[in-house]
Amino acid sequence: MVKEILTLIFTPILAFFVGIFLLGFKRKMVARIHRRYGPPLHQPLLDIIKLLSKKENISHGVMFDLGPVMYVGAAILTVLFLPIPGFKQLTPFGDLIAFLYIMVIGSLGMALGAGESGNPNASIGIARALTLMLGYELPLIIAGNTLVIKYGTTDLYKFMTLQSGFHWNLFLLPLTAIAGFIATYGAMGEHPFDVVVAPQEVATGPMVEYGGKHLGLLMIGMAISTYIETGFFVILFLGGGANILTFILKQLGVIIVMTLFDTVFPRFRIENAVRYFWRWPTLIALVGLLIVYIGGK
């Protein structure tokens, strides 16, 4: 019992630091692709410290303050439903479906908070975020349910144990894995799907009025979200890991592949992004579902 409670306290902290590491690594890698030297690896941590140590804050109302709190809270809750090797956490109480359900709360919190600021850029950003969510959720859910049909269970921890010994879904179900990858990629908001933030168009969208401690909280939430989204892909398609170290290394691999795509693409318009998601990843995921359904389990 004590061990389980300690795990629940320890995991969000681990997720935060791994997320910071992944984000810092990504910034360094983008810099190297641009032939720059790049910021130090712990630059996101410095940014968060700077933001949290601002002297004043500007608030636009109660929900504006609660939005970032809800974002971070939802991120921490989602981390607890994501198993890591050796620790089941809350997975006995919530499966894949609960996980997909909870993952959305953070964006809703941000939408409610940013909506109160009254800035038109924030409204456009929220509209884009929720529309994009309609886009990438569909292939993600189809890909997830394909695995449910294959294994006959919705337990995320069992997904990990069933894939041990290189029975990775990346090799066994490559089509589903590709669809899952594109959907995760869209959920991370990388180019060409960064329509939500889009600094040149809508001035960082939902975050336009956030500054100081609010933005610091949002960046903490973002670090944890990076951990969640890469970790989710690793569990579904890369077989989790034998221990925490291999798990983190696989997350790093996912980030590296994503960054390679991220640095070379421009940006979709929002309707093109949704059309893309509903056409290609959904089609690929449906074909993968068909293969599992017909080809046997």
């Binding site: 810099a31 720059r36 030297y37 910021p39 940014d47 600094p199 040149q200 933005l215």
Partner: peptide
């Protein structure tokens, strides 16, 4: 590399 990046809003 010094941590100086361009940002878009005054907040």
């Amino acid at each position: 590399r010094f941590g100086i990046a361009p940002f878009v809003t005054s907040r």
